[in-house]
Nucleic acid binder design. Structure first.
Lengths: 195, 195
DNA sequence: GCTTCGCATTGATCTAGGATAAGAAATGCC
DNA sequence: GGCATTTCTTATCCTAGATCAATGCGAAGC
C-alpha cells in the first residue's frame, strides 16, 4: 500500500527498504470517497496528506459564497493544513474531488523519522522550499498575468488536470469566473491553440 | 552585531549563548545602501537574508515593464531566493528599499547548525511552514478580495510599512495601480477610516 | 424513456479598476 | 535656496472581466 510513497522517497533521497519499514509504521492510509469532506474551515488539524491516487483540493468560501481553490493535490502531491501546527483553526476546507487514497502524515512524523533516517530533515526542508517557490510563482501570476496567460500557465503546470476537473474549478483556481474561462477557451480555439 | 538575531532565535527555541557562538561564525553581516541592487533576475543565489535593520524587497518585472512586489522584508523578516537551491536561475530581483543591515545565511547553514543544536531542524520546519501559510493567505486575498479589502489587510499585516514605503510599491504588492490605491485611500478617508 | 441536475456556452449589459494625462506636493540634490 | 525628480492626486475615458440571464446538453436517477 505504501509502495508508491517508498518509491517517491527513494527517488529523492537514499533510504533503504529497512529504514523505510522502520519509519513507515507511523503512517496510515485512508480512502476518501468522491466529494467527501475531509476538513472544515475552523477545524483544528495537524495532519498532512500525501495523495496515492485520486485528487484532493483545499479551498476557501468568501463572504458572497464563492469558492476559491487554493490548491489541487493529484497523485504524488502533498496537501497539508498548517494552521494547526500553530494552534490556529483552519482557514480552508479540504475535500476529495475524486475518490482518493492518501497517506496521513502526523505532524511529528518528520522529526521522529529523522531520528532513524537523518536525511529526512534536508528532504523536508527541500520540499517546503519547493512549495514556497511554487507559491511565489503563483502570486506573481496573480499579480501580473491576464486570464488567458494564467490558463495557459495552468495547462503547462497540471496538464492532466485539465480533463479531470470541471472547468468552474479551474476558473476558481485562476481567480476568474467560469464564463470568462469559457470565453478564453473559445478565443484560444479560434487562434488554433491546441493543448 | 548578531545580537538581535540571537534574541530572535532564543525567543523561538532553547539555544544557549555558547551554542549560538558555535554556529554563528558561519554567518556574515552585510550592509546595503538605499536602492542597492542585491540580486538580479537570472542570477544564481543560494543565500538567505535575515534583516537586522532596514527594508528589502523581492519583485518581478513583467513583459510591459511593470514591477510586481512579491515580498517586503522589514526588520526580523527573512527573504530568500529559493531557485538557487534547485540549480535554477532566480525568477525575481532583490534590492534594498532603505539602507539595510542583513545577516547572510548560506544555504547549508541550517544543516550544519543542526549538528550542534538539533532543535534547529524543527525550528526551520516551523518557519518554512509559517511562510507557506502566510503565502496561502495572500493567494486567497488575491483570488477573492477587492482593492480596498486588500489594502486594509495590508495595513493590518504591515502597520509600520504603510508610512515607510512609497504608495506605488504598496499598490504593486496589492496588484493594483497607484492611481487605484489613491482612490481607495480617498474613499476610506471619506468613510472616516483612520489607520 | 423521461426528468432532473450540474456544467458549459453564449449574449447583453455593467463595473472595478486600468490607462492616460496633467497638476500639486513632496523630496532630493547640487 | 532653488531646480529637478519622484510621488501623489484628480479627472476623463476605456477595457477586461464580472454579472445576469437564457439555452444547450450529457450524465444520473427513477
Amino acid at each position: 500500500m505504501l509502495e508508491p510513497f517508498k518509491e517517491y522517497l527513494q527517488k529523492k533521497v537514499a533510504i533503504t527498504d529497512e529504514q523505510f519499514d522502520l519509519i513507515s509504521h507511523k503512517l496510515k492510509v485512508k480512502t476518501f470517497s468522491k466529494n467527501e469532506m475531509i476538513l472544515m474551515k475552523g477545524d483544528f488539524s495537524t495532519q498532512g496528506f500525501f495523495v496515492l491516487s485520486g485528487l484532493l483540493r483545499s479551498y476557501s468560501i468568501d463572504a458572497k459564497g464563492k469558492t476559491h481553490i487554493i490548491q489541487f493535490a493529484p497523485e504524488q502531491w502533498w496537501l497539508s493544513e498548517r494552521n494547526g501546527h500553530f494552534n490556529e483553526p483552519s482557514d480552508f476546507f479540504i475535500d476529495a474531488i475524486e475518490s482518493t487514497q492518501a497517506i496521513l502524515m502526523p505532524k511529528d512524523f518528520i522529526n521522529e523519522a529523522a531520528e532513524i533516517v537523518p536525511c529526512m530533515n534536508p528532504l523536508n526542508s527541500t520540499m517546503l522550499n519547493n512549495a514556497i517557490r511554487f507559491m511565489q510563482k503563483r502570486i506573481n501570476m496573480l499579480l501580473s498575468a491576464t486570464a488567458e496567460e494564467r490558463y495557459l500557465d495552468f495547462i503547462k503546470l497540471y496538464p492532466n488536470l485539465t480533463l479531470r476537473v470541471p472547468q468552474w474549478m479551474i476558473a476558481s483556481y485562476l481567480g476568474i469566473t467560469p464564463e470568462s474561462l469559457s470565453r478564453v477557451r473559445k478565443d484560444l480555439a479560434h487562434k488554433h491553440f491546441h493543448p
